[in-house]
Design a protein around this nucleic acid. Structure first.
Lengths: 250, 250
DNA sequence: TTAATAGTGTCTTTCAGACAATATTAT
DNA sequence: ATAATATTGTCTGAAAGACACTATTAA
């Protein structure tokens, strides 16, 4: 008897059933001012032809590494090219209800990925099945992926409040207006430009000045804005809170 | 070929390796004003004799149900007796680094459980191996359980700020001082009684008055306090924020 | 009686949000 | 020139935290 069998039977005699562990990735980016999620079109059964979150089996690697690998495979991006290195990846939640996959018991560890505007996956890669979709146009998804996406969006909206997560959505040098566009896209509401500007600069470590200014102003006029890069804060104090909505509180 | 084999090989040809999925529970309660965690002493190899978080295999049940079942088994509490129904259980995070269990690949979905002061597990049950330990005396734990516990404590401390979680640690009727003792135990610092009192009552839906007063005052004197029960708020607005510590921000 | 506690009042500082004003730039 | 934008200033109200005070109760 192998040590593995002994292990399994000693804990749970006679009731061991095979389980598969996968990662699914909610990859978010901002394109043209709107929040997009990366989806794939399923080829095989079940849910053939449906849209789904990119994902796959966990191999001999950490869960974080599996998520990053799946993201790289589906987007066609290669590690080391600098693009993937700037993608922020974090674990979201694990989904494992019996019956969520009709074939067998599948435990899915969901991940969130935040990235500056990424190139279209179709361009020059074998990941032809993936595409960016505005989150409000995601529609129905395979398995329980719609619920996973909803949880991911909740998490993203919440983390904008008390972490510098927004800087993960912009280039390494950015303007305050760039940052404000991230908040507007993720929260789905406009923010007051003047108050936002003062607030961002008042939070220690959120952003730091590069000393440079942008080469040109806004598309429809205005002065050339100053450029900033992400600061060293891990938490925003005081936080950038959304106005409380009654629905959330009750 | 079964559908399961087909499924596995089509996704990951030739690389499938067996995986076990477990739940581990960080169960927290407050006894004598101090935060305690439920631990078990391991019998078998590896880490024989070490302390560990209670946990076990996921059976044909949801992950949430598995966590609740493990908690019930280890504490000797039976469902339906009213005690377990008042335990708040939520998913914490999933741990799955290769090598975290030397025997085979084990993915552990960790859960947090919050409960009012629970009876000692040894009393009248077959769960003789479990016991409550003050969190600062947990010491070294088997596997990566020390890291899981640390993550659980972080989560608990954080959720006290913006959710009514503290009410899960007290009886169904409680005083403001009871609530303050929860915050003091979890955060590890005393809170100003007067300001805390006013703050709790000012947050809509945090607590509601029962109209009753306690049968007696504090152990060393003082007026008989009013009694409250948990309100209907799911989030605290405005939140009850801890003073920011530099360590957290940087 | 003494000491501790519940609950309330007051003041200061910080911060969010509304609104205004000015300077700068694309078209 | 015109309109849009970046940035700064001002004001108001909410809220946090420090501190003080009174009434009530256990020992």
């Amino acid at each position: 008897m192998t040590e593995e069998q002994e292990f399994l039977e000693s804990y749970n005699p006679g009731e061991y059933a095979p389980v598969a562990v996968t990662v699914d990735v909610v990859a978010l980016t901002i394109r043209e001012g709107r929040l997009h999620v990366l989806l794939v079109e399923r080829g095989g059964h079940p849910f053939a032809g449906w849209r789904a979150l990119p994902g796959g089996f966990v191999q001999d690697e950490s869960l974080d590494a599996a998520a990053l690998r799946e993201l790289a495979e589906e987007t066609g991006l290669r590690p080391g090219e600098g693009v993937l290195d700037r993608v922020h990846v974090e674990q979201l939640r694990t989904y494992g209800n019996p019956g969520r996959d009709p074939r067998m018991r599948v435990i899915s560890v969901a991940y969130l990925a935040f990235a500056p505007s990424l190139p279209d996956p179709r361009a020059g890669s074998d990941a032809a099945g993936a595409f960016w979709v505005p989150v409000e146009a995601a529609g129905e998804l395979a398995f329980d992926h719609a619920a996973i996406l909803a949880d991911g969006l909740d998490r993203a909206r919440s983390k904008l409040e008390y972490t510098p997560l927004a800087t993960a959505f912009v280039e390494s040098e950015f303007t305050i207006a760039d940052l404000r566009a991230v908040y507007a896209a993720v929260w789905g509401e406009e923010l007051h430009a003047g108050n936002f500007h003062r607030k961002v600069l008042s939070v220690p470590g959120f952003v730091e000045s590069t000393g440079e200014i942008a080469v040109r102003g806004g598309e429809r006029g205005g002065p050339k804005p100053k450029l900033y890069r992400a600061g060293d804060a891990r938490l925003l104090h005081p936080a950038l809170l959304r106005p409380a909505r009654e629905d959330d509180v009750r």
